[in-house]
């Protein structure tokens, strides 16, 4: 799995450099999120989805793992720059009710900075 992690102040940006967030990598993504959020104590996370073209239900589950851990630690996350297909999936599954989505990483950063 190819990804980058960038930290600016107390905000961590996780950029997934994969075209597909699906069964083949969702377990690894969950593992990375758990490490970042539980072991390293990150509590403001931006998931940069700009390179991800498609996602399936297991990919959504991986994102929900991060959301669950952050909720239990009073943390926050933003999904940034999803493709039309991924955003459509988030809306169809009604996860936009619990996962805040921003058009850009910069917008996500500004929102988290205020929290």
């Amino acid at each position: 799995m190819n990804y980058e992690i960038k930290k600016i102040d107390d905000i961590t940006i996780f950029k997934l450099n994969e075209k597909r967030l699906d069964t083949n990598i969702s377990g690894l993504v969950k593992g990375e999120f758990t490490l970042l959020l539980k072991v390293e104590g990150v509590n403001k996370l931006i998931l940069d989805l700009s390179e991800v073209e498609t996602c399936d239900s297991s990919g959504l589950s991986a994102i929900l793992v991060a959301n669950r851990i952050l909720n239990s630690n009073n943390g926050s996350m933003r999904l940034a720059a999803p493709s039309d297909k991924v955003y459509s999936l988030i809306k169809i599954t009604q996860l936009d009710r619990v996962l805040p989505v921003c058009e850009t990483v910069e917008q996500a950063f500004e929102e988290l900075k205020k929290e």
Partner: peptide, 21 residues
């Protein structure tokens, strides 16, 4: 049903729901 408020954050059922949609 993964879109019910009590199930929204759960992992199960989303694949089946997407196929139905």
């Amino acid at each position: 049903d993964p879109t019910m408020p009590e199930n929204l954050l759960k992992d199960s059922g989303r694949g089946l729901y997407l196929m139905k949609v």
